[in-house]
Design a protein around this nucleic acid. Structure first.
Lengths: 311, 311
DNA sequence: AATATATTGTCTAGCATTTGTCAAGAAAAA
DNA sequence: TTTTTCTTGACAAATGCTAGACAATATATT
């Protein structure tokens, strides 16, 4: 194979989820990987470099400081992550052959084609493929989120039918479900409840949040869509979670939600933190403020909030 | 084994469920563990440190005060927890521990307990356990089906709340999804579309059917719940499946469904076979007969029908 | 029973280190 | 031209450290 040292830094950044700056900083400060250089001094990363950086990236994301793990080699890193039961999502679908190259059509484009063609298998295959290439955060932030937006747009514009949206949702739901790993969390991990209030049927956003919290080591209880306030309150009472995350997607002309939120407020008395997110969360500003809910714009803020509450 | 002291305090906090503050406090006050320090005075914990802290954490969570157990070593702690039947196993809620020895409690009973306790992880764990013990058909016929019936009954009788039903559904959906294997299906496998018509929100039956068809080597396109007739027709038109399976769960006072079925009939003209199943399918006898649909009572008949159509 | 004492988890303040991010200016690639 | 990449240096945010204080419980003493 000719393409042994073929990854420029931008590609490495995409593959690992690390920013270009961070990759260079880690090299400068710790020599975590020292890529070959082109004749003109460009960094050229090998496949092994990328793999090691992926491991370092997930380890770093789970609290290991780069300084302490920078000296470990590939296998020591593997052990470290296995020992902590934090191994990155394992999708060794041995069947899926490696067509690593040919990245000209992006994952997103392929996914959109599959959606239009009502090709559920194609969509699923492509998403798993992307998962192999991208880190999990990138998968969610840069593929799934825009894909869902595009599907929504295409649906609104009549470019696709309801059935396309349904089938795609089913596939995405399946994949998100498979990413929620409940087996590797410590017994006394902090708990989070995830629900979408009554009148809110769309659940993919909630599932994404569930995946993120699970990857971050939270004890996730996913309650699904369309749950009345008193039911959410009952669950809080029973499970005493640190956080209740509400996913709110539908636009703001929905008075049911206001009523439900008021009810929830009445029913709560303990210190559980409430986080609201989703496309339309902001439109309920007053209601949510009244609930002492933290309103989050985007997924990354949700990640940060998780960290904050945890400590 | 290399005894790497590589765990920084943040990771230890995540692994043990203890806050960083508590870890330091316990060290300052009782020296429960005394980690090595880095050159710059950062704490570096060993694997043994982490294990001991885990034990201390669960013991503490179960009422032992840290002062009284701080002097115990690893094995004394183990004994203590075993003696109290509080092993750190992730899924032993203290309630269930007491009937530990009684293996005659069936999977079903354990699942029902988990449902009542709103213990999503317990339910998931138990179902996976059952999956290991039982063959897939038995799992569906003898565990999942009665479990769903029981959940329905308990819900109707007010023994459990809506939220119990929701959480359980989410878990079961997750497991069923994971059982649909789309990777090992040959490209020329016969196709089947699975949907629940409009007005039919409950989808677990449909998912069970999807699992069965998938296990039988069919190319499954699962379209999810609540799909209008013209959308189903569009999908049939596009995918040309051999079978369309409709899952009908709600009781028979639903006129929407009659209308939807009539519409579907109008929209279809090819030779696709339609199968209807689900608790309430029979109540729609006339309507479905008019559609030339085959109405099936139980899952086994569905399996047989699959075989018949395939050949 | 009431009071005193001890225990324990949580928090703050001030300082040091670590780490992610950015800017500027030059060079190479698209 | 525009984008990408390079190096260097600087900065700000995050994290960790110590010491000490506080409030809520638990335990002991009167």
């Amino acid at each position: 194979m000719e393409n042994k040292n073929t990854y420029p830094i931008k590609v490495v950044s995409n593959l690992t989820g690390l920013s270009i700056h961070v990759i260079r900083a880690w090299e400068k400060r710790y020599n975590v990987v020292v890529p070959q250089r082109s004749e003109t001094n460009r960094r050229l990363y090998s496949k092994e470099d990328v793999e090691k950086l992926k491991l370092l990236s997930t380890a770093s994301a789970h609290g290991y400081s780069i300084g302490t793990i920078s000296t470990l080699n590939y296998y020591e890193l593997k052990n470290l992550l296995n020992a902590s039961k934090l191994s990155e999502s394992e999708f060794s679908t041995n069947r899926m052959d490696q067509k690593n190259e040919v990245e000209n059509t992006s994952h997103l484009d392929k996914c959109i084609s599959a959606v239009k063609e009502l090709n559920a298998h194609g969509l699923e295959y492509e998403l798993y493929n992307a998962l192999k290439d991208l880190s999990q955060p990138k998968f969610i932030d840069e593929l799934l989120t825009p894909l869902l937006e595009d599907i929504g747009d295409m649906w609104k514009s009549g470019e696709i039918r309801i059935v396309n949206e349904h089938v795609s949702s089913a596939v995405i739901r399946k994949i998100l479900n498979s990413l929620i790993d409940n087996n590797s969390i410590p017994s006394n991990a902090p708990s989070i409840i995830i629900a979408t209030p009554k009148g809110q049927l769309h659940e993919l956003g909630a599932l994404m949040i569930a995946v993120i919290a699970s990857a971050d080591g939270w004890n996730v209880t996913y309650m699904g869509p369309d749950l009345p306030a008193e039911e959410i309150a009952a669950a809080i009472d029973r499970l005493r979670p640190k956080i209740v995350a509400l996913s709110i997607v539908y636009p703001n002309d929905d008075f049911t939600l206001d009523r439900e939120m008021a009810k929830l407020k009445r029913l709560l008395n303990n210190g559980t933190k409430i986080i609201a997110g989703g496309r339309s969360a902001k439109s309920y500003g007053k209601t949510l403020e009244y609930l002492n809910a933290k309103v989050l714009d985007n997924i990354d803020d949700f990640r940060k909030e998780l960290e904050k509450v945890r400590n």
